[in-house]
Amino acid sequence: MTDDATTDTAAEADEAAPTDELREGIVEGFRERLGDAVVDTEVQPGLDVWVRVRADAWREAAEVARHHLDARYFTFLSVLDWLPSPFGRSMDAAVDVELARRAGEEAAAPATELAHGVTGGSTRFQVFARVAKVGHPNDFWGVTLKADVPDDTLTVDSWVPVYAGADWHEREAWEMFGLTFVGHPGLRHIYLPSDFEGHPLRKDFPLLARQVKPWPGIVDVEPMPGSGDEEEGEADA
């Protein structure tokens, strides 16, 4: 992931200062308070910062952010399901096959292992949230916090005692991913009917409409302005 960061646009503009003292300072702030509960961190200079903490330090991380680092603004809380879709990669696969055919190769088999993103991970579900320090015209930053959710219990501490606004976000995460937030005042359905079964945003929950009828028009898209000439011929093929 660090390699990606250097290719990012803003990072290029910021190349004179590849280190980001502000964001390094945030990471330091978390490390200072949480010690070895901080599992991994990632700083994209000038862009963003990620901090992954242990699941048991999830609420403590929120307290540190809110009370010690002054990140009083709660942006969102949600969950990542890293399971590769058991239904294949639908139209991705179709395009891969098409591209491979043009290149005269075999299409790569769909991934079956968990491929975690920034700051890595070890479990299927990761809870992640974003908080920010706002209200000071020249002192704005936000941080994305992540934690691995144990696969066996699927529970994690609730943030509601720290950020009251996490209430609805945790209800959504509970209903969409089936994670339980310990200490939440009332986990109940927010979007779905109360007799709904399943957790729709999990990767193994089929989007039936798409299983029945594939989304059309992925290979023969209309030409876009600015697309290169050398690719025009390919599009016609």
Partner: peptide, 29 residues
């Protein structure tokens, strides 16, 4: 229009961008 590939495949990674929309902060992770 900048130069973009014919078929857009976005490199692996994570990005959070939010803007000041009419209703407030609107962001995509």
């Amino acid at each position: 229009m900048a130069k973009v590939p014919r078929i857009i495949k976005v490199p692996a990674g994570e990005a959070w961008i939010s803007t000041e929309n009419p209703l407030g902060e609107m962001g995509y992770y």
